[in-house]
């Protein structure tokens, strides 16, 4: 029979070609689009434009914020709680990018605007970021669900130096129930200054360094109890500001 005369070894190139082809198809089908990634290096992070500049007096180079109440809290309560979390929790602190050793970097100089955001007219365009407070259980499309807080960046521009892009404005969408937590107020404010969520439960992992952005909620139980940024956070924000 002709088949018996054919050496078995001679079939292998064809077999290997078939295996190679099948593997290539399988590997290609498995390949997905590039996944989202991030870092705390300061080079890929969304942040406020005014973080790079400063003035020795209260001016538009400072990080002004105002409070916009949609519901769930009074303006005076919300403003009081936010100011307390930002200014009265000691060091480290976002304000002046203060580390625990007392060193500061004045490019972040947080300035509360005492009236409701809507009262500022066209001057509102110079206010860098706003806390929008909503009742618990209200739907916040920007957050993707209710009962959470999140941030939105608006007006992406190329920096005055031309070196990179960033955002002129930011919005912190606060669930009114979160106003009682220094942790959550400071955590959301960290997003405004360029830091991402981190920890095993989020897409940007980054492990579990001592950081207010790597919350216990995201799998970093060692950070439970943090109420303000850490020196690591301040270092990261200084890197963003130095772009």
């Amino acid at each position: 029979m002709p088949g018996l005369d054919r050496p078995p070894r001679r079939q292998r190139p064809l077999m290997w070609a078939a295996i190679l082809f099948t593997s290539l198809v399988a590997a290609t089908l498995q390949a997905g689009p590039a996944s989202a990634h991030g870092s705390h290096s300061g080079w890929e992070q969304r942040h406020l434009a005014d973080m790079h500049t400063w003035t020795a007096y209260h001016g538009i180079e400072d990080e002004e914020f105002c409070v916009n109440i949609i519901g769930g809290a009074t303006h005076s309560y919300a403003l009081s709680r936010i100011k307390s979390a930002l200014f009265n929790t000691g060091t480290p602190s976002w304000h002046l990018m203060t580390k625990s050793d007392g060193s500061t970097d004045v490019r972040i100089d947080i300035r509360p605007m005492d009236n409701a955001c809507s009262s500022y007219g066209e001057r509102r365009s110079q206010i860098d970021y706003e806390y929008w407070v909503r009742p618990n259980n209200s739907v916040v499309p920007a957050c993707g669900s209710d009962n959470v807080s999140c941030v939105t960046f608006d007006v992406q521009t190329r920096a005055a130096s031309g070196s990179h892009v960033h955002y002129e404005w930011g919005y912190v969408h606060m669930d009114a129930d979160h106003l009682g937590s220094d942790t959550l107020i400071n955590h959301e404010t960290g997003h405004i200054f360029g830091l991402m969520d981190g920890g095993p439960n989020v897409s940007y992992h980054g492990g579990c360094p001592s950081s207010l952005m790597h919350l216990a909620y995201y799998g970093c139980s060692g950070n439970a109890g943090l109420t303000k940024p850490t020196d690591n956070d301040i270092s990261s924000v200084r890197t963003v500001a130095a772009r």
Binding site: A36, R46, E122, C143, D154, V155, D197
Partner: peptide
């Protein structure tokens, strides 16, 4: 109202967990 112009979001996308950004201004 009293504004001559205002910049506002038209379309936004999620940029990372807990954050969105205007992609059409």
């Amino acid at each position: 109202g009293g504004q001559r112009a205002v910049l506002v979001p038209y379309e936004l996308m999620e940029i990372e967990h807990g954050a969105t950004a205007t992609v059409t201004q």
